[in-house]
């Protein structure tokens, strides 16, 4: 039973991500993607400060590699680019393209970081994702012609 609860929580988390992107996308069309990214990070920072106090999880890690701090840089860029395309592509299309890019990049970064070439199953997965992108491209063209 508890497994099902966690499955549902993770599913719900997908909707939470979607809500965040929808709000940022809406804000971006009003004040621009970079300002939307700034608001997202400032509000999230304040919220997490409170959460850390409540959860009591302040842990300044020892010997953290400097590269670990690059996440914030990519996060700021991600929110800006995603907020820009979200209202232009629509929620579903934006989610599908972002997931595709994320999955393919994950295979590449694992390959680069681990040194081992990706498994056959993973290569097949990349091919199926690319097929999906290709199929949605054909729909896009059809709509442009209308």
């Amino acid at each position: 039973m508890t497994v099902l609860l966690y499955v549902f929580l993770a599913f719900l988390n997908g909707a939470v991500i979607g809500t965040s992107r929808a709000l940022n996308g809406r804000l971006s069309s009003a004040i621009g993607p970079f300002k939307a990214s700034l608001w997202n990070h400032v509000v999230g920072f304040v919220f997490l400060s409170v959460a850390l106090v409540v959860l009591g999880q302040w842990e300044w890690g020892a010997s953290v590699p400097w590269a670990a701090y690059l996440g914030g840089f990519f996060g700021a860029l991600f929110v800006a680019v995603n907020s820009y395309v979200f209202p232009r592509l629509g929620a579903m299309q934006a989610a599908l393209l972002v997931i595709s890019g994320q999955m393919i990049a994950a295979v590449l970064t694992d390959w680069q970081a681990g040194g081992e070439s990706p498994t056959g199953l993973r290569c097949l997965g990349v091919a199926v994702v690319l097929l999906g992108i290709y199929l949605s491209q054909t729909r896009g063209r059809k709509e442009d012609r209308k």
Partner: peptide
């Protein structure tokens, strides 16, 4: 389209580095 896919790649990089930080904290 290209920007959407690029956003996904940025997200993957963000998660990669944030996971690294989370391992230490």
């Amino acid at each position: 389209w290209v920007l959407g896919i690029a956003a996904g790649a940025l997200l993957a990089l963000m998660i990669h580095y944030n996971s690294l930080l989370a391992e230490h904290t």
